[in-house]
Amino acid sequence: MLYILTSFLFLIGLFGIITQRNLIKIIISISIVENAVNMFLVIAGYRNNGIAPILTSEADKAVITAQSVDPFPQAMVITSIVIGLSVLALMVAISLRLYHTYGTYNIDEIIKKQKERS
């Protein structure tokens, strides 16, 4: 059930990328899509009545291996969040330079002004 909700969030972000005309809103939609995929990956590691996989004392080892949620997707998600962060920073920097050149964030007007200038 949670998988379907996360896929729905993915589809909302996808709709945003396709239909929005403002560059900042496209960037926010990409961020929504990345968050949805990361959430899907974390949910995939859930075990019923699981506890967090943190070892607090030596005696907990047996309890942790028997009952904790899967820590491997959490490691994957750390890497994926960092990748998403760097792509987001790059997109914001490029759109800022485009704003200084063309004076607008709207992609239709940017294309029109680009055709006029060349």
Partner: peptide
């Protein structure tokens, strides 16, 4: 933008 969509 297209590359970020592809990676997601």
């Amino acid at each position: 933008v297209l590359g970020a969509l592809a990676s997601a």
